[in-house]
């Protein structure tokens, strides 16, 4: 265990994956964000975390940052592609209302992780964000560093079918890609995870390669599609049942939004797996996306009837 006594050097954002995460967390904590932990369910992106999807709605101020492991079953490459994983990390920041200096804050966070604006070409390139499954859209940019997209920057206009009032700003950092750039490695599996060297060094591949292999097999070959179709249908029904059960009476608030929204997340993940398994045709695909969107919209509509959603 002697190696573990290494000092703060190992936690430099350009030395270790975890150092990058810790730096971003500290940075945003200092800016007044609550630092949350990942949501404990399989989601396709950090936006699915209720801390973003639901908290973006309603009038109450909300500033949060968190890492979210994200699963995109179709992106599995059996651990053979250095850039594409079916499981990866996003660092997510949500600020409501969007502060007037959000661009400057974002750039400051890049400086904090060691990107020097006198050396690098930083750019905001048009990218209109839309999530058909979440019934959400916003305007913003892909943020480029020397031609590489390192973040997504969005002013949410609508989420879960609800107009955002006020608008929240969302920042999403692709952590693996950013770390690869900072560490100067071309293969994601070679990322230094803990910042140590020699025998004590742990790489991203040490942690995740086997998982990439196994989950790729699972996503493309073994996942039980009958079970998944059933899961989808059950989650959909459960979501609706919970929303109905929590429906407020006169002068009351909705009482079952978060558990219902969990079911929406489950349905979405089941759909993503079915899609990876290639058992959903093009026309069906649209209708599944629509079904998830309807759940998300129903949850959004219920959320604004809760305390955190700003209901009186």
């Amino acid at each position: 265990m002697t190696a573990l006594t290494h000092g703060p050097e190992a936690l430099r954002p350009d030395r270790s994956f975890q150092g990058l995460i810790l730096t971003l967390q500290r940075f945003w904590a200092e800016k007044g964000c609550v630092i949350l932990q990942p949501y404990d369910m399989e989601v396709g992106a950090g936006t699915f975390h209720p801390a973003t999807t639901l908290r973006a709605l309603g009038p109450r101020p909300w500033n949060a940052a968190y890492v979210q492991p994200s699963r995109r079953p179709k992106d599995g490459r059996y651990g053979e592609n250095p850039n594409r994983f079916q499981h990866y990390y996003q660092f997510q920041v949500i600020l409501k209302p969007s502060p007037p200096n959000l661009q400057e804050l974002y750039l400051e966070s890049l400086y904090a992780i060691g990107i020097d604006p006198a050396l690098h070409d930083l750019r905001f390139v048009e990218d209109d964000w839309e999530s058909p499954t979440l019934g959400a859209w916003g305007l913003g940019w892909e943020c480029w560093c020397d031609g590489m997209e390192v973040s997504q920057f969005t002013y949410f206009q609508q989420v879960a079918g609800q107009e955002c009032a006020p608008v929240a700003g969302e920042l999403t950092y692709g952590l693996e890609r950013l770390a690869m750039y900072l560490q100067g490695v071309d293969n994601g599996f070679e990322l230094n995870f803990n910042g140590l060297e020699g025998e004590a060094k742990v790489t991203y591949g040490d942690v995740f390669r086997q998982a990439e292999e196994e989950y790729s097999r699972h996503n493309f070959e073994y996942a039980n599609t009958e079970k998944l179709f059933r899961n989808f249908a059950e989650a959909e029904a459960e979501c609706r049942a919970l929303l109905a059960a929590g429906e407020p009476g006169e002068g009351q608030r909705h009482r079952q939004v978060l558990p219902a929204y969990d079911q929406c997340i489950k349905a979405s993940h089941a759909f993503n797996l079915l899609d990876a398994r290639g058992v959903i045709s093009v026309t069906e695909r649209q209708s599944y996306i629509l079904r998830v969107r309807e759940l998300a919209k129903a949850c959004g509509a219920a959320w604004v009837k809760t305390e955190a959603g700003g209901a009186a």
Partner: peptide
Amino acid sequence: PKSMRWGAASTSSASLRWVRPLR
């Protein structure tokens, strides 16, 4: 062609819409 709202003022639907925040 596409415009947006932003910031604290966007609580009101009458707030200014611009392509990206006007500074």
